[in-house]
Design a protein around this nucleic acid. Structure first.
Lengths: 149, 149
DNA sequence: TATTGTTATACTCTATAACTATA
DNA sequence: TATAGTTATAGAGTATAACAATA
């Protein structure tokens, strides 16, 4: 009958558990490989957004990463204090700050990305290279395809 | 030469970005599907650990989920206040609290797991069922195979 | 001495609301 | 009026250290 007892699953099979713990493992590896650059994985993400596009306002960077613009203030404060990014009022609209990489920031983002690749490789080391790329592609599919909200 | 400029990757291809945003999407879906049960995805995880094994101490539950035992105190306080779990001193070792599901907790964990399945299905809906299972298996491999610390 | 649960405390991450300067 | 950046504030989530009870 349909009211039979459901066998409850092992918590280690739940998607939330798996995503969280995979993220924690990556954080650990990033803590090692990014230490020489004085940034963490989230800060590298900010640098990548700034590096990859036309000059962006703070708010555009925040939107790309899914954080509030008020949160971005302190994040950029920290990167600016380390002379990795600059903020300059946009001459065309002086409400906006154009965020850009410094020369040092540009060097760091490239070297830190290589270090982050090592962290990712460590987390993915139990997988065949083809499966590692498959995992990344599957995640990218759900993140880009699933409507937020 | 080897010092040529490295092309910096799109942030949306980084493993950390993908894991975090996949987790956020799942949180959103859980907020919808678990609302009737008054718990969130992390609390369901605790209930699953308690449901799945021989009577566990608080510390064993905390260890299984990778949180500190001091953190577990408040989490169990909340579940106990909703009459989903009980704490009883272990007669064989009265330093330990044996944590168990109440009758209500047992009913909730089974129905909430079905609701969580719906949340997972929504997040994975862009994937073919076979790919959804592959994603879960790949994540499980790295989480169980990668040594922590 | 060592361990379990607990409390006090602090730190990180984050969002909301209100302020300012600009538009 | 509306928007970008900022500040003040508050609420999660978490860990560390110290304490009481028990082993």
């Amino acid at each position: 009958m349909s009211s039979e007892q459901r066998h409850v699953p092992e918590v280690g099979t739940r998607l939330g558990y798996l995503l969280k713990h995979a993220g924690l493992l990556l954080e650990e590896q990033h803590a090692k490989t990014l230490a020489p650059f004085g940034i963490d994985g989230r800060e590298l993400g900010i640098l990548l957004v700034i590096a990859g596009r036309e000059p962006s306002s703070q708010q555009e960077v925040a939107r790309r990463l899914g954080v509030d613009r008020s949160t971005m203030v302190a994040l950029l404060d920290a990167l600016e204090a380390r002379h990795l990014v600059t903020r300059q009022p946009d001459p065309a609209d002086r409400r906006r700050n154009v965020v850009a990489l410094t020369k040092k920031g540009d060097a760091v983002v490239r070297r830190a990305t290589a270090a982050s690749d090592e962290a990712e490789a460590a987390v993915l080391s139990a997988l065949k290279p083809q499966d590692a790329e498959r995992l990344r592609a599957l995640l990218a599919t759900i993140v880009t395809a699933t409507p937020a909200g």
